[in-house]
Write a protein that binds this DNA or RNA. Structure first.
Lengths: 165, 165
DNA sequence: CGCTTGTTTCACAACTTCGTGAAGTCCGTA
DNA sequence: TACGGACTTCACGAAGTTGTGAAACAAGCG
């Protein structure tokens, strides 16, 4: 291993920690965030449990718990090469789509709760009107998010085409 | 106080708790979230420390800490009626704008960190290319968020006009 | 079959966060 | 300038989270 490679490894590791930290700042649990960051930095987008444990210096138990969460929310998929006992975790291509979709669901819940509030206060009160407008804001966001996904797909196509030229 | 009013109070209180809980699910600390929810349900959008403490059944110390946070992130403003020793906290009209703006800043930080990663890996590697695309996604979101604020302003005007007719 | 390797479950300990009570500070008022 | 009310600070205790080690479990392979 050359010195240059060592420096690179260090830089990559530092990126994994920083990006993991940012993701956990946005609400994702710490371990899943770090694992996702680690997967992002692999060429294949795949990593075994042991590799994850080694890379992030965590116990197999921690890996187990975190990947269970990540598979549940469809951020990674679990695979196993035939004839092997090792699980391999693959980052799904549509992670950001999934993440956006999940935020969108949250907006739906906010809408529900705000509707309760509007009912409780009535739109004839100032507070009720404020709640009504707040709800409209979140409904607006909901609509925006939906169309944003479409726009991203288009933007991505164009961007990739530009990059290759 | 009539029975109907009592029921309303209960419904409002329930809304405050539910909406506070949702806000804290999205990352905001519990107390600030509850206080914001409480302010939303007042006609004037204003509340004194004592009122907040009473409404949410929390100590003055908890109020103090939470409103300090809320004023720092510009969600509420502190006022004091001349000749009074009571602080009054007012919900700012542009809370949702501020919240969106703050998310936007987060996107900027993500961009920075991802750029480090792209540098560390180089765009000629598969991982580097993936990071590059990820960064492009967040940059796209950044742009979308910016224009979304404008669109919301326009949408709001129209919505208010419609509501009044 | 039993061994080996890899994963999962579970109870525990460390850490962090959160809200409180009590003491402290500030400031207008008499 | 002394009083009183209101806000803030601080240290503590409670509660919830998080990651670990150890043991149980599963599955290929000799």
């Amino acid at each position: 291993m050359t010195r240059v490679t060592q420096r690179d490894q260090q830089a990559v590791s530092q990126f994994v920690e920083r990006f993991g930290a940012i993701l956990s700042d946005t609400g994702m649990a710490r371990m899943p965030a770090r694992i996702l960051a680690a997967l992002l930095t692999t060429d294949s987008g795949k990593l075994t449990s042991a590799e994850i444990a080694d890379l992030l210096q965590i116990s197999p138990a921690a890996v187990s718990g975190a990947v269970r969460y990540l598979t549940q929310v469809r951020i990674v998929s679990r695979e196993r090469e035939p004839g092997s006992r090792r699980d391999v975790y693959r980052m799904r291509d549509d992670v950001w789509y999934e993440a956006t979709f999940r935020k969108d669901q949250m907006l739906g819940m906010i809408d529900e709760v705000l509707s309760e509030g509007v009912t409780a206060l009535g739109t004839h009160t100032d507070a009720g009107a404020r709640l009504d407008e707040t709800r409209e804001f979140f409904r607006f966001c909901h609509g925006e998010l939906g169309s944003m996904i479409e726009r991203w797909k288009a933007h991505r196509e164009k961007w990739i085409a530009d990059r290759e030229s």
